[in-house]
Design a binder for these strands. Structure first.
Lengths: 343, 343
DNA sequence: CTGAAAGCGCTTACAG
DNA sequence: CTGAAAGCGCTTACAG
């Protein structure tokens, strides 16, 4: 059995003082050359930059931050209990956040918040380790937002909240769901069923609004026979599908692709052909449905772009710039075989 | 349109100097009371603690770190291109890492590395922002490990590498896959097919080894007709399934649950009943297969525990403690309906 | 244009 | 047991 031990050789890094000494100038001057703040002659500036390039010096961001009362860190909360559908959303969002952050020399720290346990968030705040935080799409009642407000820590929600005084940026679920539903109506469907996820998530409420917007626009009745909310277990989905078949729905719209996957499996078990007997579409497309046959019609959002934008909004806000209270991003609709017209 | 602007009221935090002044003692003493290092009378220690509790003072970890040449941060690399199967692994691993880190007052920063682009990792290292890094399960050729070695930055791999001088902790895939395969043999199967994922991932190679260990142990031939590697597209999986049916396989073992899901869908389309006509099992169980009918036999790993352990190994290594070069975690086998004996 | 000095909020020999 | 002082690696008025 091999054993490892870190010898921790001192490995001293070069500092601003070393540069000053080597170049026979003051630390102040070196600092100015690097930051570009304050008057400095082009000549000495170039000498410093040349030395830095040659020695591969990198400023210690921590020390810089300490002097400036900044940390150059933001936190991203991740839910402790995350279901499969949300994972691609987080994964891609995270990706976008990281990229936008590093472009401005910021780093992102992870803080888990499980249910109403804000322990880790409080710790992070108490430790003075971040300049702001990004809350990711979350429950209707959000304890975290309340805490951050009370602490006066800048934050933005990557998602939507009805609370208009919290900064938020989100995909335009409502418009997307409306338009997708409209397209399904245009192609001849009149009895479009909805299999919805848990209404504890505001995103699910918004999606439903989009669906209802479309019905209203087409003067179709909003029928209880066609709308099934809170289908958060396979049993509920199965029940919903059965009722929809009974109710002669010509199309089923699923609120997310986990539900959609379940619906497709049930339909397959029941030998109900898609799209011939009934069409199917999903309000959110992740890789879950990727290889399904038939390919399924869906809404596509760019979660990475969402993350990136959320991050830059936060950074601008931290900097003291003006930012819009709510920002909405676009979407794309992909019509595929699962809603192909067959008559 | 509402506009937000951060007014940045000074919001000055209480410091060690404030406490010293209030209590008429030196900063040194306050520091000692908090850290517990150095001799200090129980009485003054209690006075300080009482004051801290009353004022809700929290030390500035950044300043502390600067003085101690530590950051109290570790980095976690996340792959820029992550497929669906890996997401639960990362998500849970992250969770475990965060918890173990915060238990020791450490925070975890995210750094994305896409392909061979180490830009973000280099930046993080250059900025002196972390004491060490956790590399997550990765490709066979890992540029990141090389970079970290050259920089003498402590790191551990959450996964397995054949490079024995990198610290690693992983689930015991090999033993798990061996045992699962053995169980399938014991229950009467003699022609167990394997549908494998991309061999660029070392985890897939290890899983295959476990499978082959079991065949060897049972003196079954390791047949090319039954082993299909690199099935990283739906087409390849489909082809593999067809060949396996032709070859009269009595059971199909899938290397991960995305492959398994594909296999099950194909079988369902072909109207091949599971487990009656052919049994199916998976080497890794995430939520992907959760609601499948029949329930599928699988190996279960505790990825959160893996993350937590990986993190504490790194922290111990950073601290200068001795750690084992390679640590393996256990697994669980759940036999379900998809491998039920029907004869 | 440049520098000496104080400061960010902590720690840690060193001396008493 | 306690404190004055120097230091971690930067920045930033202030003065020249």
């Amino acid at each position: 059995m091999e054993i490892f031990r870190n010898d921790r050789t001192e490995n001293r890094k070069i500092t601003i003082a070393d540069i000053a000494e080597a170049l026979q100038i003051s630390k102040t001057t070196v600092s100015r050359a690097i930051s570009g703040k304050g008057r400095i002659s082009e000549e000495t500036r170039e000498r410093v930059m040349a030395y830095i390039a040659a020695t591969d010096y990198k400023p210690n961001v921590i020390a810089k931050g300490l002097a400036q009362h900044k940390t150059y860190n933001i936190a991203l909360t991740i839910p402790g209990d995350c279901n499969l559908v949300d994972m691609p959303f987080f994964q891609n969002g995270m990706q976008g956040i990281c990229e936008a952050a590093s472009a401005q020399d910021y780093d992102v720290m992870l803080v888990t918040v499980t249910g109403d346990d804000l322990g880790n968030l409080e710790r992070m705040a108490a430790n003075h380790k971040v300049d702001g935080v990004i809350l990711s799409r979350s429950m209707v009642h959000d304890a975290a937002a309340g805490f951050l407000k009370s602490q006066q820590i800048p934050f933005v929600l990557m998602g939507t909240s009805k609370d208009r005084d919290i900064l938020q940026v989100d995909n335009d679920h409502r418009a997307g769901c409306r338009e997708l539903t409209e397209r399904l109506i245009q192609s001849g469907n009149t009895r479009i069923g909805l299999v919805g996820g848990s209404r504890t998530y505001v995103v699910n409420r918004i999606r439903q609004q989009g669906y209802e917007d479309a019905l209203r626009g087409a003067r179709l009745e909003r029928s209880g026979q066609l709308i099934f909310e809170d289908c958060d277990t396979p049993e509920k989905v199965e029940l919903a599908v059965e009722k929809l078949l009974e109710a002669q729905a010509d199309c089923i719209v699923c609120m997310d692709d986990a539900i959609c996957l379940a619906v497709l499996q049930i339909l397959s078990r029941k030998r109900v052909p898609v799209p011939e007997r009934i069409q199917v579409a999903s309000f959110y497309d992740s890789m879950l449905l990727l290889n399904n046959k038939p390919a399924v019609t869906s809404l596509i959002f760019d979660d990475k772009a969402l993350g990136a934008l959320t991050c830059s909004v936060l950074l601008r806000y931290i900097r003291g710039d003006e930012v819009k209270g709510r920002t909405l991003l676009g979407y794309e609709i992909i019509m595929r075989d699962s809603t192909r017209e067959t008559h």
